[in-house]
């Protein structure tokens, strides 16, 4: 973990209210692992007190890329940051995805697909096997990362809420169909997305007896494991820190 003022290399709107932010920092980029996040100070003053934790989408040489959605005051403020400005970043933080060889299915909902794209590229590089990726989006306009994932060799399947592209329905239904009907039995499932999606997916993975890792989102205080603010209930009854024990957990470790 490092703290640095990182130069904004590029920052632009991707689609609807999704943005891509590219930061420059060689040491952070070299340390970053899939599933880890950066904790970003979005304004210089203290009106908006806390940093915003955002997953790393991709590493390109010394560049760290992030894809985020404007959901509140923090991300609204971040969206105003311009290229060439410097922003204060702490990272890379947290416990990322555990890399496993074999057939993997990645399931991403909304911006959740951003951190999974980094995982897909890493799995491809490490094991020379591109995973299957299922992407859930509200509609085809909000669809993220699908072309880039296809480019590295992933089989990409899309589910949209309105049926404007791919499977008409939830990404978890698409997952169930693939595993149940087409007998696509993976060794591992990695998921990142809204809580209802993760809950349903974990239930399905238990049913099909597939190990599953989930990346969780939570409001954070310190972001480094000191304040106990961003907890999730563990299966042993204890509270685990999303920022340090996670954000990626084995589905068996946490009560969602």
């Amino acid at each position: 973990m490092l703290q640095a003022k990182c130069r904004v290399v590029a920052h632009h709107l991707l689609c609807s209210n999704y943005y891509k932010l590219v930061l420059q920092n060689r040491s952070m980029a070299s340390k970053a692992k899939p599933g880890q996040f950066l904790n970003i100070k979005v304004e210089k003053g203290f009106d908006l007190l806390l940093r915003r934790p955002l997953s790393i989408h991709q590493i390109k040489d010394s560049h760290l890329e992030i894809i985020y959605k404007v959901v509140g005051r923090g991300t609204e403020k971040l969206a105003q940051v311009k290229a060439q400005e410097k922003i204060d970043v702490i990272g890379p933080l947290g416990h990322g995805y555990a890399l496993t060889e074999g057939k993997a299915i990645l399931v991403g909902g909304g911006t959740g697909i951003a951190s999974l794209a980094f995982l897909a590229a890493t799995l491809k590089n490490k094991y020379n096997q591109a995973p299957i990726v299922l992407i859930g989006a509200r509609n085809k306009e909000d669809l993220l990362c699908s072309e880039a994932l296809e480019k590295i060799g992933c089989t990409v399947k899309v589910a949209t809420d309105d049926g404007s592209q791919g499977f008409h329905g939830l990404v978890t239904e698409l997952f169930r169909e693939m595993v149940a009907i087409f007998s696509t039995h993976p060794n591992m499932v990695y998921a990142c997305g809204p809580l209802p999606m993760l809950r349903e997916l974990v239930k399905l993975c238990r049913h099909f007896r597939i190990p599953c890792e989930v990346s969780l989102e939570e409001h954070m205080g310190c972001g480094i494991g000191a304040c106990m603010g961003c907890v999730v209930k563990g299966t042993k009854g204890e509270y685990l820190r999303v920022c340090k024990d996670g954000p990626v957990f084995n589905a068996n470790e946490v009560v969602l």
């Binding site: 009106d47 007190l49 806390l50 409001h219 106990m228 603010g229 961003c230 907890v231």
Partner: peptide, 19 residues
């Protein structure tokens, strides 16, 4: 064990906590 979630709430220039 500490308190159930949520434990944090950001306010203008402040932070509410219930750890």
């Amino acid at each position: 064990l500490g308190n159930p979630q949520p434990r944090l709430w950001e306010t203008q220039g402040g932070l509410l906590n219930s750890i």
